[in-house]
Structure formats: C-alpha cells, structure tokens
Design a protein around this nucleic acid. Sequence first.
RNA 1: GCCGGGGUGGCGGAACGGGUGAGACGCGCCCGCCUUAAAAGCGGGUGUCCCCAUUGGGGGCGUGCGGGUUCGAGUCCCGCCCCCGGCACCA
Length: 822
Amino acid sequence: MRGFFVPGDESSEAMEEYDPQAIEAKWQRIWADQRAFEVPNPGTDELKQQREKSYVLEMLPYPSGSLHMGHMLVYTIGDVVSRFRRRSGMRVLHPQGFDAFGLPAENAAIREGGHPREITERNIANIRQSMRRIGWAIDWSRELSTHEPEYYRWQQWQFLKFYERGLAFRKAAPVKWCPNDQTVLANEQVHDGRCEWCGAEVESRLMEQWFFRITDYAQALLDDLDTLDWPESIKARQRNWIGRSDGAEILFRIEGLDEDVPVFTTRPDTLYGATFFVLAPEHELVARIESEEVRDYVRRAAAKKTAERAAATEKTGVFTGLHAINPVNAERLPVYVADYVLTDYGTGAIMAVPAHDQRDFDFATAFDLPVRHVVRPPDADADESAAYVEHTGDEVLVNSGEFDGLPAPEGGRRIVEKLAAEGWGRFAVNYRLRDWGFSRQRYWGCPIPVVYCEECGIVPVSEEELPVLLPDIEDYKPKGQPPLAQAEDWVNTPCPRCGGQAKRETETMDTFVDSSWYFLRYCDARNEAAPFDRALVDYWNPIDLYIGGVDHATMHMIYARFWVRVLNELGLVGFREPFSRFYSNGWVTLGKTKMSKSKGNVVGPDDFLERYGADACRLNILFLGPANEDMEWTETSVEAMARFVRRLWRVINDVVDQAPSGEPGGGVLARKAHATIAKVSDDIGRRYAFNTAIAAVMELVNELSRDRAGRDARFAAETAVSLIQPYAPHVVEELWERLGHERLWEESWPKADPALLELETIEVVVQVNGRIRDRLHVAPNTPEEELVALARESSRVQAYVDGAEVVRTFVAPGKKLVNFVT
RNA sequence: GCCGGGGUGGCGGAACGGGUGAGACGCGCCCGCCUUAAAAGCGGGUGUCCCCAUUGGGGGCGUGCGGGUUCGAGUCCCGCCCCCGGCACCA
C-alpha cells in the first residue's frame, strides 16, 4: 500500500490536496441546511433549566460597501468565544444585524442617485454574503436591520414611553450645526470643531431640538460602572465623559440688574481671591445689558466658529459697566462678558480668581485687573507675579478674613458652610455630561412619532398608528429644513387629539437610538405585538460578552446604558446594565497607522479569503497579537497561517493512515495533548488570549508531526483538531470525519485529565545563590528532603558551593526549584 | 493640566499569584536536504560579549534609564525618560 513511500517524503501518495474553497463551501452548506447555529428561545419550562446561557455579541455593523479587517477581527473574536461556549455546554445566543440608517447612505444617494434604502440593502446583501463566507456561527433567524419598519416601529413605541415620562423633550439649545450636511450634530460627532462626517467646520446655532434627559442619570451611570467587568481604560473614558466635579454653587448679586447669578466653582477656598466676574456671551442676562459695546462683542463671539473659539490663545472680552457683589466680603467685582466662559458648562457664569486659575490670570493680565493670592503653600512664599494653580491639599488660606490660616480644603468647606447658612451658596455637584440631543435634520433615519398641532401643540402619535413610516421622497439634499418637509402628503395630517390641522415632525432620530436597544430585539426578533417579550429578554440579558472598538466606548455604550436603565424603570426589562463584560478589540493597522477609509490604506479580507481560505484568515487575524491591542497587518502572516493549516491537514491525514487506533497510552504526546487542552481552554475561556491558544495548538501539532504513527498519535490528532475548531471550523470538520467522527461543532469541549497533566518526571532547577547551576529530573512527588539531598550531591552544585557553608536552602512551591545560599 | 495604557531579539509577540538557562509560537534571515530547476515541503541555526578549543565546552552581560526590596525581579517599590490613547478655556 505504501510501496512508493520514500523516507523523508512527508506526503502519502494517496492524500488529496487541501482545498480550502471546496471544504469551506461544503461545510457552510451543511451548517445552513441544518440551521446549525440557530438557537431557539427557551420555552417557559426551559427558562428554569439549569443549562447556562451565554449571550455573545459584537457591536452592530454599519453596512458600508464591504467588510474590512476590523470586522474580520471583531466578529472572529465573538465567533471563537461563541463556538467555544456552545461546545462547553452553554446555550449560546450569537446573532447578527445591521445598523442600516445613517448619513453615509444618504450622502451616497445624493451623490450618485438612487434611494438610500436600495444602497443600504445592496450593501447588506453583500456583507451578509461575506459573513457567511467567513463561516461565522451566527443565528441568522434573528437577523434585523434598523431601517425596517418592523424594527423602528418599536423604537417609536419606546420613544413614546420616554416622552410620556418627560425623558424625551424639546428645548432651545445651542447646537453644533454642520453647514455642509445641513444638520445638527451631537457633541460626540464633533472632533476638533469639525464635522465627523464631512470635516466641515461646525457652527453654533440656537435651535429647538429633541433631547433625552440623560443628565438625570449621570450619577447612576457613574456609580454602576463599578459593577461592570470592563477594562479600566473604558470605564475611565466613561467617567471622563460624565465628568463629575464636586464644588459649590455660589450666588452673586448683580448690581443694577437686581439679579442673583449662580456660579459653579470647584475652588470655594479661593473665593476671597475673586477680583472680577465673567458671563458667557450667550448668558441670558447679557441680552439685558444696554451697551452697544457688549452687543457688538456678543455678535462677534457668535460668529466665531467653535473651533476658533476653542483654539483662541488670546483672551477677549468686554466690560459691561456692571458690578457683582462677592457674598463673602461684599466686594464689588467688575462684570465682564468673555467667550472663554462656556455657556453650556456649569451656569455660564464664573467668579474669576486670577491668582489661582490660569485662564482667569491670562484675562486679568490682558485687561489689567488685580490679582490677589489667597492660598499659599505652607512653607514657601508664593510668586505673586504668577498664578498658583496647584492644590496639594497642604496650602493655607491668606487674605481670607476669618478663614486665614486654615488649610485650604477645610477653609473651602467652611466658606461654603457660612454662605449656605446665609442663603448665598451650597455644596454642589456638576457634570460635564449634557442631555442627548437626538434629532437630525436628515432623511434616512427613524421618524419621530409626534405631530405639531396648531391647537394642541406637540401631540404624540398614538401607539395604534405606529409605525410612522418613512415616506419616499425625490430629493434628499437638505435645504435648511429637513428633507422630509418635502413629503407634503405625509407631513400634513390630522391631529390625533383634536382632529385639526397638524404637521408631522420632519426630523429623524440619531442612529445611536437605533443601536441603544437592538440587542434586546435579537432576543425576540419577530415579535409583532411588542418590542420584545420581557421574559425572553431577561433570560438572555445582560450580555455576557460584548465586543467592539474603543471608539464606541463613550457615545454608543453610554446611550445604551441610559436606554436600558430607563426601560428598567418602565418595567420593560428586569436589569439595569446591558453589558456585563466588555472586551475592547484593538485596531488593525498597516504599518503603524490605523486602517481607515479616509487614509485610503484599507486592506479588505475578500482577496485573502479567495487566496488562502476562511480558516487561514480567521487564524491569522487572531494570531497577529493580543486581540485587545492594536495589531499590525502583514501578508506574510496570512501565508504562515495557510501553511499551518496545510501542515495540520497533512499531519492529521498521516495519522489517519499510520497511527494505531485504541486508547491513548499516556506517553509524552498524550500528556502534551492534555496540557494543551488545559492551556487552550484557559486562554479562550478565561483569558481571552486568542493568540497564545493558537501557539499552543501549533506546539502540539509540531510534536505530533514527529510521532505520527505512535500510540498516542491518534489521541493527539483528535485533540489538536478539536481545540483549533473555534478558529478554523471548516477544515477541522473534514479532518474530524477522517478521524472517524462527525459533527465536531456539536462535540463537547475536551477536558484535561488532571492525572495526565502531571508529567512523569519533572525538571527541577538547582540554583546556587540564585544562579542556575544544574537540573534534576525526578518524579513529581519526590519529597522535599530527598530533593534537597539530591541537589546537594550534584557535582556542579558542589563546584559552585566550593566548600562554603550553605546558610539557607529554599525550595520553591511546587518543588520546581531548589536554591542554596552560601 | 487631569485620567488611562505601554516600553522585552531584525520584526509581531510569549513568560497568567516574584520561582526552570528570558525570548514560547510565528515572521524574516542563514545553512543543509529534496528537485534538472523552481515552488511546496523537510531538518538545523539565529540576543550579546568574552574565554578555551579539533568536533565541542565554559563564563559574563542582557526586558527604556537610575536606585531599592528579596535567597531569587521582565514581574513588586521609589525616582526619572520616552511612546500611544481619552478628556479639556469644563471654572
């Protein structure tokens, strides 16, 4: 049979070539036919079953033209974990859908013609096909796209609940307006004063907007971060974003206007150092100031682009002629209007303490205002010509009347207490987080289900009327008013309350609303009577492993947390936090720069799928490095993985031909196999160290390849195939069959035999004064005394001890090391 | 400025609760085998300096820099330097 076998020739003449395309197509067809990865919802009785559930989810993809390496990474991470957990006996939910609304499709429609829906659905079809081609184990029966009325209908329904609670409301607010896209942007969508999408400089405008009252939840969102198993860096970002500051609110009487204006400060200890007072140009009181100079300054400030205003190095402002009274010492402080004071942080007004705030100091210098130092380091004279802005906590108050000599923190406290007693101040907390402005003056989004009635004002559409369908229109180009305004038949509608003339809301929702609850809909994706059934949602949630990029750590993940928290208060879900554990994947880079469309350095997976197959590509993306750090894309590494798969193919086929069947013999190879089981299970199951799990299987295959016909070869082969299955699910099914089994994707995950994890002999390192001088090979259960005696006898140890007295002897835990100290 | 994460071979990276010669696994490179040749494959080598030597053997130094703790430090502590990221005229 092996007549032409030539020593050294690795390949059996009977062995077929490894053909990834054919093998992958075959198994993908089988999985689809058998609906292998659909997981039914539990029945009522099953809800009580012990079988552990696991909800593994990657962030919802935006359906741009095609998949990129970032997708490849995120979804492969989730796939490996979900396949691993499924084989570990859990009931695993691993669905997929599309974040289908949004500006890019609409802009493409404007640019190239066509309907955003057609463009989007074409992209979705394309991406879905790629996803199947990569072999991700997805429950496609739960697929959703956020642009489908079946989905957004229930989003509108939830909006109505928020509206009833007063959590969705309209207010006039200064908003970031993109003059190019003709729409309002969320703060989060503005980077360095520029529009996230088109890069145009953003303007500030005062407009009526829809908001969600997320600020009511700032503290709750901050507190509950402590309960979440997230990377510290991600929690830190959310904490930064929420931006809690502890301080005081203090009232200043404005002479002449007869108004008490509150300011927020984190430094009440410096109150005696206030030498002037500043209002933001947008502050409501400013409009009441009768001064041509002030009006002129306000006009110029308003005209400045946000970017300019933030980048300004020189402080500008104008004296109002008014004075504010410092409540602590009745000093008259000149009131200025200056645009370095922000209107949307704190109260839009500040007490200025130039001695202890760099910005105030700069302003005081420019306007020749006095600087009075009131806190001083305990053992040094302050430099009166500069601002002293440190606060180590050891400073003492000076020039502060009755509070002189107190440590600054205590002095600050006492000052607030005194003001509080007199009704001029209180301790206060301020947050950076703003309410979530969610209306967009664009077409391709979820319609906001309200109408404006001439008689009744804002009237919500009744639940029975949902969904408010997005109508088709001719022209998507915004012209100062939202594109939906063109759909006159749709806009004009009778008022649900009085039946009179009314107009529909023509703004649409921010797509972050769409992605704030999609993970709930997956649990009950075809429900036509409700957004979801609470029992099902409570069964699957919270998500056990949520995977995605850091770029969504603030906006999406804060909004979704807020949304779920509100649903919890509404009694619609039984949990407060949606994402128990978050795994943040790194970026795939080319060279050292991030792959991104704007940089034009995107390498797509399609080409590599064709050349090397899905299994090699899946292995590659996880072998590049730790998946939670940035990793550099190299073509040589895909080739290396293709080589590994081919090698696996050959070695296993040889084992099938050459190795005896029967029980493993417990030799070195069998022990290696058990060690590998332990390592891979821990790497995937606990450490999320996907790269080292692959390395471990490679080591096993390397050892196996040297002993393909041995008594443990078959066991080692089965183990290697089984362990690499989550990464390379196609080729292993083929090999598994050749090994005489079937349906590896349903096979229980192997368990390491603790008895075989112990090696027959262990190597014990013998050190003299911390330097390794010899090694012993002994039985693992050798008693300590015997071990020490053996080590002491070693000629090499003798040589290094060299007659000196051994003062101490250390035996490391596990008896793997003996150290003699002379 | 505040906050978070990092600095390990030629490269990507291992070393998981201080305990086996740091460098697993892979890439690259070098040598060899196979081949008419190539591809593929297979075997070996690959931190650095030094010493003895014929194959071979032995030793010192090495995880950004400087200290420290410890029998033992890439890992812990103190002080620096550098890189990446978040927030930021945020009062």
